[in-house]
Amino acid sequence: MAIGTSRKERIDSLAESSASETGVSLAASAWRRLRRNPVFLVGASIIGLFVLLALLAPVLAPHDPGVRMLADQVSRATNSIPPAQEGHPFGGDQHGRDLFSRVLLGSQQTLLVAVLATVIGLGGGLTLGTLAGAFGGWVDSLVMRIVDVMLSVPSLLLAVSIGALFSSQTQFTVILAVAIVQIPVFARLLRGTMLAQRESDHVLAARSLGVRQRSIVFRHMLPNALGPVIVQSTLVLAVAIIDAAALSFLGLGAADDSVPEWGQMLGNAQNVIDSHPHLAFWPAACIIVVALGFTLVGESLRDALDPKRRR
């Protein structure tokens, strides 16, 4: 009897393992591995925390980030930079505004810039990459030469140049500059996977059925070529945050500092970094942690979607 049950159990466990392996889509199996990956969990928690903070910032912030403290809260000894005190856990900035509230609200700008810049860059890259990969020939050569030229300039330098082109810098010009820098990365990646699809058996089979070119490109090639691009976009989110912060730091962000932005706060803290390092510390720490969160998620997503590592 005992032998009988143990055998049954063995068979059941075998059946279970085979059932979990067969007929599982790529997305489902990737998700199964992600759920158990500590790297992904840490990254996702960081992102989740900051998204939550950004959404709740207006409610959580104890003070209006644009309003200065009253004069009696500012001690002369601190050079008009108020120290941490009751109701102002981080103290105030150079203009006497509550630092804690500004850091909190800064998360909104940072996430907005990251997401918008990535979406715009992705849109541009998808368009160019699809053109190059679908048509090949001289269209491909033309698009890829433009992309190569853009890639040959260091990305931050390119972003700075583009940002400087605008006569008046705003948050939107920062977004645009960061997005344009990402376009060639996406375009090149997509073009590569599209070309691989063009040679694939199922595209040949679709052509043998007389399927229209439009449908071959958008139904048979593009969806199969998107995987690496999706992974890339999570990594680009991190790059976009850092690039946007760098542009603001260099003074190419919005001229008006009433809307707090981490890179800009960091830039403004430069002059007083010896006496008041905490003014630089908080925004810098936030930038690093958020960027790390997106990088961790991106890396673990790439591993999870890599078919060679599927088990």
Binding site: S200, D201, H202, A206, S208, L209, G210, N224
Partner: peptide, 24 residues
């Protein structure tokens, strides 16, 4: 030619595993 392929001329390929589009 594309109008005729699939209508007048059909083709069956070697490898059924890779000759179908995996995502639709």
């Amino acid at each position: 030619l594309a109008d005729r392929r699939g209508r007048d001329l059909g083709m069956v390929f070697q490898d059924p595993l890779s000759s179908v589009n995996p995502v639709i």
